[in-house]
Design a protein around this nucleic acid. Structure first.
Lengths: 216, 216, 216, 216
DNA sequence: CATGAATGAGTTTTCATTCAT
DNA sequence: GATGAATGAAAACTCATTCAT
């Protein structure tokens, strides 16, 4: 159930290749991490497909071929970005739901979700914009599993709140989760550029989500 | 304020081309409409960039070159899809806000938004997934204007509700609009596949949005 | 057991692609056949890997990218060459072993093998020189099967000769087949260039093979 | 007639390089020999072109760049493999043809040829599979000469047998040599893997070659 | 001796688009 | 309207080789 990075496997030439089959995760190095970060920015800004490896290399001040010293493929770069994101998200969520009552748990999940917006802006953006394309590639099948794991945690938290009589019983948990998740993550498209700060945004959302638009 | 289709203008090689000049709306024909619909499905499923004209042609049972008897370019196909959507949406919204109080108006806007999900599933999907790319193209600048027009209608409705003491005054109208719009449209990714029906979905959303998750 | 051409399947982008999935064999056309023949010459002369698609295109007087209008990949070109060869060889062999006694059958098999040298010089050359590389690719696994089919025909013929008391019983059929086959095909490397004609070569080989070097 | 290793000469960029000039045989070392052996295995398994220096380095547990402390180039590795082979083969052949009559001489040449199959499996495999490519490189011109020397020895032996009335006079010596040589060496492709042992194989071949398939 | 990073020139492949028939 | 063939520009990727540390 460990969402290990896929980086490094699935070489095309099916014959003999072996190249970094051992451990699992790619051989982290400072240089490599730096390149991943540069690529992430570009992927977020222009989209995965629309970003060329040349652009990534240009950004790093090297030639495009030189990128392949560090990565197997363009896909393996985005793989690293996305798997990092899910690894962190799952760990944070797991810690969150083990403490406090349903209200605290749900609040924590929401806050974590908002909290990922900045550090993982690129990953979330890519997930929003390019998932439709990436999901078609075998290599990213594991992300579907990761997302399901996250969903389960939310649903559990929502159910607890309903059982405790805190949350409305007529809410369909899965639907509610998706609504909240998408509502939060979709803001990645504009919250940053338009000068809202995360704190205010989080507060606003929690407010509306928990208490509605109507005046009671 | 007429958002005319852009089809046919702004050819990249502006040199010799002539082909249906003067913004005259594209020559509608059954065959053409059919092709647009096939393309829309593919754009929605695989993304605009990832869909090749060959795939569109394949789907139609013709060769890719033959598509160019009907369209100037691949872009002009998606243009048609998107402009149709905005034309309809704006018309519907305009009609909606001219009737009833703020509560009815907002409810109508929400219902219209949900109502576009099925007939314009492809357009909305493309807008979600490929907008980041498309917005970079001059030809689609008019869509930014269209979206702003829509935003204005929503904001007006929300402000009316606040002024009437119906909606909470602490809500930032623009933020609230985006939150609602994104929340609704982002469902295009799963509402269809996972067996929820539009009616139930709309009700659920309105419920949560207007009255919150908490029990009052 | 049909050695169908592999051309056209195994597209890389595993997602949605379909492109010519129907029938099986690629859509034959004169142009296409011509290109295959040009490529075959080059593959034979320089080896599969050492021949670039640019060279093939140059030979045809088109640009390298234009080749992909006709073929999926460089591999699919060589696939066509090799599968054609085995299809013909198997058909000819099958017809041969159904007539006459073991002596005639073996003679016919040898003659067929020699007979392929000229029309299928390229295929045999590629098989000699590049098989080591090609066999590593999944796409060519079917050739292993084809070769086994051929082997079986020979072994059956040899066994019949032994059972009939015509051929020496101490000969290991499989070993003998391979020795003969390789002996014949390996000549593809020089018989052509050095001015031997097929007739004389065949006679010489049959002579030595059947009656040995020694004087009796 | 000394077949000196070519290692080190004929660098492609003849401009600035200097590195171990003057045909002086390469500096043998245990480490170096080990690397050559590893490379030989890979060349035999995958072909010269298809084997990357990275794979060789991987096999040795070092980085590809480090290989260049031991070798000038990838070509110089295969050069070492091939020249070793021919040096040994010629020496052995020379010794063989100086003793006994034509029958013994031819038998000895055949036995030597078979005897090289195991210790020089890689060299012979490369010669079979990659010669077509390598022969195009200036650096390997000397191998053509070496092969001609070997051919001459065989032809001399065969002619002696014919002159002595032992071998059939109608056999063309050069053709016969090539047939025998290729017949033997081509087995390098399967004799090893399929469980035949050299002894049995040699006996079988000599048997068939000298006395034919027919019963006399 | 080895590493780690990079070069540079090449390779195969992709695909929207054009156009004579 | 459609075909079939091609263009052309760019894409991802490969890999032997170099070299400062």
């Amino acid at each position: 159930m460990t969402t290990t990075t896929n980086s490094g496997r699935a070489r095309s030439r099916e014959g003999g290749g072996r190249r970094r089959a051992r451990g699992a995760a790619a051989p982290a190095s400072e240089r490599r991490d730096h390149l991943v970060r540069l690529a992430a920015e570009l992927f977020a800004k222009k989209g995965f497909q629309a970003t060329t490896v040349r652009e990534i290399a240009d950004e790093a001040g090297i030639l495009s071929g030189s990128l392949y010293h560090h990565f197997d493929s363009k896909e393996s770069i985005v793989d690293e970005i996305l798997s990092n994101f899910y690894t962190e998200l799952k760990a944070a969520n797991r810690a969150a739901i083990e403490q406090g009552g349903p209200d605290e748990a749900l609040g924590a999940l929401v806050r974590i979700a908002f909290g990922t917006l900045e550090p993982h802006r690129a990953a979330i953006t890519v997930l929003q914009n390019d998932w439709n394309y990436l999901k078609g590639l075998d290599r990213f099948a594991y992300l579907i599993k990761a997302e399901e794991d996250v969903e389960e945690m939310w649903i559990t938290a929502i159910r607890s709140g309903q059982d405790a009589g805190l949350f409305r019983a007529d809410l369909e948990p899965r639907l509610t989760y998706r609504m909240i998740r998408d509502t939060i993550w979709v803001t990645v498209r504009w919250f940053h550029t338009d000068g809202f700060d995360t704190e205010a945004l989080t507060a606003h959302y929690l407010n509306v989500l928990l208490d509605g638009i109507h005046i009671h």
